[in-house]
Nucleic acid binder design. Structure first.
Length: 566
RNA sequence: GCCCUCGUAGCUCAACGGAUAGAGCAGCGCUCUUCUAAGGCGCUGGUGCAGGUUCGAUUCCUGCCGAGGGCACCA
């Protein structure tokens, strides 16, 4: 609907004033200003110097004719806005579309065969999976779902940090302390890493030893490889546990080490194109507006800059993507600017888009969480706490007593607890920092996943009692009353929101929409009886059903479970 | 020092350059002999500072102040 009206307005402006309209159609904040509003007349007035109200009136006349099938009424308001009211019939038909579309309602066909690669989560091997990795993991998964739903081919790749000098540090510790790697779990590995940096502060020679060990690893030293492999296995065991809890998955998890044998070719290509310069024994790439990046270290080892270049090359050859999205923290912004700039210089960009969704950090009030200094919060601890709190809530409210099988309360607590945590993260605009505070993570009322899950279960409960196979059997109800209208005028926007959230790399837009939807439903629910309705019963059931469906589709896109009962 | 991001209510966050800046939490007061009270209804309260562009600025530009991040062999 938005597209039709937007096009009509554009066309009208073009025909009447021969101007290309830039201002988009919008949803006014005040519902008294209609379903859609256009500042077109204001824009035309700016360019032609004439009276905006006069222009608005002219546009109104034309549009009333062009849009007579869609629009009930057009009003001209104060400075020169055009406000549009959709026909009730159209809104009612949308309910039918929701029922028919079911789990696919809101899906789009924007992809046109294009492929998008999303690089997300990417925890570092040998370190605990910290709260800091929640953002990338959860936002990345939501973007993945959104693009798939929008009709793109999507490749999700978990670019594990399983290569680099950090392994030199681990190897150095394991060897010098003569430890048995078989007994090392991630907690112990991280301790080694923290110890290493503590020692390195006292004794700079430690860093050199670490670099030497990494070089050994990179040049295929058998012992180094064996230890490295053990460390990876131990880490993956923990990561898999967390991904299972979070309900997050990937198409691939190549990791940095996968590109080991692909780097020489890339290095050669960069050299051949004359982009490298020697500096203090290292090979660097310089940029006009950025600090230089290191391609090859002075000891001949690679950096993760080199690896990211090799990764791009591989991804292009393998999937020929139109877009590569990196869901990585904002502290790596410079790095990606350097990588993207180099890729462009190498001629790899060519019609391709590289995007760094630089999310803000989860940090303490005083600053960044630093693994090196041992300042981490284990995500697993946070998840367990979230589930424990959800369980308490479930028990306290005495929910879902009937048919509650033995494992059922566990399932509910997990879905609610994990959902609350994921939603907490997703509902924040990606680019802002999040201050870590235990209490804030576990909000289970108000703007939270449990509120949405509760609303969904509530709607489903009504529908179960209604026992109608097809609550949409109603046809031409009388006009929706005050109780139904706000909900009816909100549901149809879901597909627009799916598109906006994807286009802006902002799952939080979807959160905002769903929360508002739930609020509107709950107000409606409190104001109007559904099952015992004396009027508009079919319509109310249809609204209930549509709300449940949209909530489910939206939450699923966010990677949050819905439960039929809680 | 240079570069980047962010400053909105007591707290946590919304708001495509638009119309009376919205929520949630916290606080106070109502509300379950109607379908799930994890709910609903109401009250209290805000754009860091100074300029500029615009019919219109929380949004764009400049400067300042404050917070965070980054700046060569970590990732």
């Amino acid at each position: 609907m938005r597209i039709e009206i937007e096009d009509a307005v554009k066309k009208a402006v073009q025909e009447l004033y021969r101007l290309e309209l830039a201002s988009p159609l919008e949803h006014p904040k005040q519902e008294s200003f209609g379903d859609f509003a256009s500042p077109a007349a204001l824009e035309v007035a700016r360019q032609t110097g004439s009276d905006p109200l006069e222009i608005a009136s002219q546009l109104k006349l034309k549009l009333e004719d062009d849009l007579k099938d869609l629009i009930e009424e057009i009003q001209v308001e104060k400075p020169g806005f055009l406000n549009f009211w959709l026909k009730d019939q159209l809104l009612l038909e949308e309910l039918g579309r929701i029922a028919k579309g079911a789990d696919r309602y809101g899906s789009l066909d924007l992809g046109k065969g294009e492929t998008i690669i999303i690089d997300y989560s990417a925890p570092n091997i040998a370190k605990r999976f910290g709260i800091g990795h929640l953002r990338s993991t959860v936002i990345g998964q939501a973007l993945y779902n959104l693009y798939k739903f929008s009709g793109y081919k999507v490749v999700g790749d978990n670019h594990l940090g399983d290569w680099g000098t950090q392994f030199g540090a681990i190897l150095r510790q394991v060897k010098s302390k003569n430890l048995n790697v078989k007994n090392l779990n991630v907690d112990k590995l991280e301790e080694l890493y923290v110890d290493f940096h503590r020692e390195a502060e006292q004794n700079p020679k430690r860093m050199e030893e670490a670099r030497e060990w990494f070089l050994k690893l990179e040049s295929g030293d058998k012992e180094a490889r064996e230890i490295w492999q053990e460390v990876i296995d131990a880490s993956k065991k923990e990561f898999d546990r967390i991904y299972a809890l979070l309900g997050v998955g990937f198409d691939y998890a190549y990791g940095e080490s996968f590109y080991e044998d692909k780097m020489p070719e890339v290095i050669a290509e960069v050299r051949k194109k004359g982009l490298v310069k020697k500096s203090d024994g290292a090979e660097i790439i310089e940029f006009p507006n950025l600090p230089p990046a290191i391609l090859v270290k002075s000891d001949g080892a690679t950096t993760y800059f080199t690896r990211d270049l090799a990764t791009i090359k591989f991804r292009i050859e393998e999937w020929n993507p139109q877009t590569i999205i990196y869901e990585v923290g904002s502290d790596q912004k410079l790095h990606f600017q350097q990588v993207f700039e180099t890729a462009r210089k190498l001629g790899w960009a060519d019609g391709r888009e590289f995007v760094h969704v630089a999310h803000g950090l989860i940090r303490f009030a005083e600053g960044k969480l630093s693994t090196r200094r041992g300042q981490t919060v284990k995500l697993e601890d946070v998840l367990e706490e979230a589930i424990a709190r959800a369980k308490k809530l479930t028990t306290a409210s005495g929910g879902a007593p009937q048919n509650a099988g033995a494992g059922r309360n566990e399932d509910i607590a997990r879905a609610v607890g994990v959902g609350a945590l994921k939603y907490f993260d997703l509902s924040h605009q990606p680019q802002t920092d999040i201050i870590f505070e235990w209490e804030k993570l576990f909000l289970m009322e108000g703007n939270s996943a449990p509120y949405l899950q509760y609303t969904y279960a509530r709607a489903k409960s009504v529908l179960a009692k209604a026992k109608t196979d097809n609550p949409l059997a109603m046809s031409h109800e009388p006009l929706a009353s005050e109780a139904e209208a706000p909900l009816l005028r909100w549901l149809y926007r879901f597909p627009e929101v799916v598109q906006d959230a994807g286009r802006n790399y902002s799952p939080n837009l979807l959160c905002n929409y769903l929360f508002e939807l739930a609020q509107r439903f709950n107000s409606f629910y409190a104001a109007a009886p559904i099952l015992k309705a004396e009027e508009n019963k079919d319509l109310r059931l249809a609204l209930t059903s549509a709300t449940a469906q949209v909530l489910k589709n939206g939450l699923t896109l966010l990677g949050i479970e819905t439960l039929e009962r809680l």
